[in-house]
């Protein structure tokens, strides 16, 4: 396409590239250079330190579990919001976005108030022997909260666009409701479900504000990776902080790539 009928190509693209270069690329380059300063051996030393390794496992493990729970709960909520009408449906629909709108520090102290041993929910769980606040379970709860809207919001448009004739055809051919869902609907929803899952996972891995209050931040037990970076910064270990930052970023890139592939796959799926 050689036609450039409209003006402003140089101005807009130049501005965008300068802005991104100064505010995104330059700082990220500083991170990469700082991390590479300690060399591969140094990088390995930093990452294999037991507290860092434990935080790495907790951050990715809890994020994975939270994304799985959000995939199931998100599917249920999206289904109910699209398929049924009930009083207050629009209100509940708006409520889904709350974790996007509520500042993470606010969510963090609110969840802690609920799940602390004397909190609204905590006081019912303690007699059952379940401790949530200040344990890895608390980390999980916070991650479920911040990642929840992603699956619902990726599934909703797909559910709305589904042709209900397919379901009626399946039913008229003798399929039960469960069969129709598992064999007909679920394969159609799967790409969007996976996209939402990956987005929720990426968000949960990097989450900081809502987690640190409820986690209790006990090293080796309930300390997440972003907090490890903060602690290293407080001890002026800039290179170590950069190394952990680069690892987080690299893993995010892998997730981003996966999301891109999933989206391409889902588009191809929808066009069939």
């Amino acid at each position: 396409m050689a036609r450039r009928v409209l003006p402003g190509f140089g101005l807009s693209l130049g501005y965008v590239l300068t802005y991104l270069g100064l505010l995104v690329l330059l700082p990220l380059a500083a991170l990469a250079v700082k991390a590479s300063g300690i060399g591969l051996a140094g990088l390995w030393n930093t990452l294999s330190a037991p507290p860092v390794l434990a935080a790495l496992k907790l951050s990715f493990g809890a994020a994975l579990v939270s994304a799985l729970i959000n995939a199931a709960a998100g599917l249920l909520v999206a289904w109910v919001l699209v398929r049924y009408s009930f009083p207050g449906r629009r209100l509940f629909d708006a409520l889904v976005d709350l974790p996007f709108a509520l500042p993470t520090a606010v969510a963090g102290i609110a969840l802690t108030a609920l799940y602390a041993p004397k909190g609204w929910i905590g006081e019912w769980l303690v007699p059952l022997g379940i401790k949530v606040a200040f344990t890895p379970l608390g980390v999980l709860i916070a991650m479920i909260f911040v990642g929840f809207p992603f699956v619902v919001r990726t599934l909703q448009p797909v559910l709305e666009s589904l042709d209900r004739d397919i379901e009626e055809a399946a039913t008229s051919l003798g399929a039960t409701r469960l069969q129709t869902f598992l064999r007909v609907l679920f394969p159609l929803l799967l790409p969007a479900l996976l996209t939402g899952f990956a987005l929720a996972l990426a968000r949960a891995v990097g989450e900081y504000g809502s987690v640190i209050f409820i986690a209790g931040n006990i090293p080796m037990k309930s300390e997440i990776l972003p907090l490890v970076i903060v602690k290293q910064l407080e001890q002026f270990k800039y290179a170590d902080a950069a190394a952990v930052g680069v690892i987080m970023l690299a893993l995010s890139f892998v997730l981003l790539l996966a999301i891109g592939l999933l989206q391409r796959w889902s588009r191809r799926w929808a066009e069939r």
Binding site: L31, P226, Y238, L256
Partner: peptide, 18 residues
């Protein structure tokens, strides 16, 4: 879209390093 997939802590860290 990149800043959305960077952990907030890393987003602060990069400016400290700069």
């Amino acid at each position: 879209d990149l800043p959305f997939s960077v952990s907030p802590v890393v987003s602060g860290l990069i400016y400290v390093l700069l």
